[in-house]
Amino acid sequence: MTPTLHRREVVESLLSKRKDLLVVAGLGSTAWDITAAGDTPLNFPMWGAMGQAAMLGLGLALAQPKRRVLVITGDGEMLMGLGSLATIGVQQPKNLSVVVIDNGRYGETGMQATHTASGIDLAAAALACKFPFSETIFEKSGIEKLRGAIHGQPGPNFAAVKVVAEKLPLVLPPREGALLKARFRRALLGDSADSL
């Protein structure tokens, strides 16, 4: 099936009325996507450490079991940390969702094909890793269902959302890692963040 969904619209829908959702984005296009939907201290857009977005989400979900945690990352970034699906499968965090915005391309480096372009099935890998909910989504109707899962369904949840491979204007979040960390912790933990 040829993808028809557009990544910025998908991410904007997933993040609309996000309430107190904690959001981690993998480096590259998904970090620009969450920023285009509205930069906030409870976004943690990564500028490096490729392959670690899902694990960062796991650490956060385990530390904050009462909050919903969403990782939004690209197919290339997820493929680099495929083992983390197994690690998440062992821990079974009910409050974690991992959404891959899958355009089948390494978008920042010249749109080279990723493994998913050859039919490697990330949602099947997540199912095999004991994610109770895991789907490949092509349609708008699937996005609304996914939004519901992210906000309330016991996880870990996984989705690969197939999107059009397109080059979009960059919408950049702050770059400095220490700033991104400090603002996230203050927004989440309050003033006590500085004295923990």
Binding site: L22, M55, L56, L62, A63, G81, S84, T87, V90, S192
Partner: peptide, 26 residues
């Protein structure tokens, strides 16, 4: 304590970072 087995040590870096963002020591 929660002991989390990793597939590779690299995962521990993401795990520790996420935990600290959430206010927990690892």
């Amino acid at each position: 304590m929660r002991a989390a087995v990793l597939t590779t040590e690299e995962e521990g870096i993401g795990l520790a970072t996420g935990a600290w963002l959430g206010g927990e020591k690892s």
